[in-house]
Amino acid sequence: MSFDSLAEIKVQVETPDYDSGNLQSILSEIKFALEQLLQQNKTHCIDLRAMPWSPGEETRLEEYLGRGEISVELNALGKSSFYETRFSGIWIVTHYNQQDEIIGKLIEITYMPDMIYAQYEDVKNSLERLQQP
């Protein structure tokens, strides 16, 4: 038997129920960032892969933030998913590679993640393609 990626091996991880304190600190960072977004229109971004999570902690954060009204899927160099959590203005962004492995995971505190907008270079390219006979 051979596997192309770890994800194919079905492993169930049991997570002991204790807290390293990461959750409270990340939530207070998020709260502060939301205030800044409202007051100064300043966006903020947290790299979730740079956090020293204890087992299960990241999942607990995602469960707490929940899912809100909108989600967007991007297909470029593999999939990416953007969704707003049940707290408007707090987005969870996950980037996958072509093998469906996570290559980036972020919390964005913003009205809309920048990458969702059509990009200037791509729009220019569209026009050029349409203008070709």
Binding site: S80, H95, N97, M115, Q119, D122, N125
Partner: peptide
């Protein structure tokens, strides 16, 4: 054929 979005995703990773 990678778009600007794809490039930005690459930069994020």
């Amino acid at each position: 054929g990678i778009t600007r979005r794809g490039f930005l995703k690459y930069c994020t990773a």
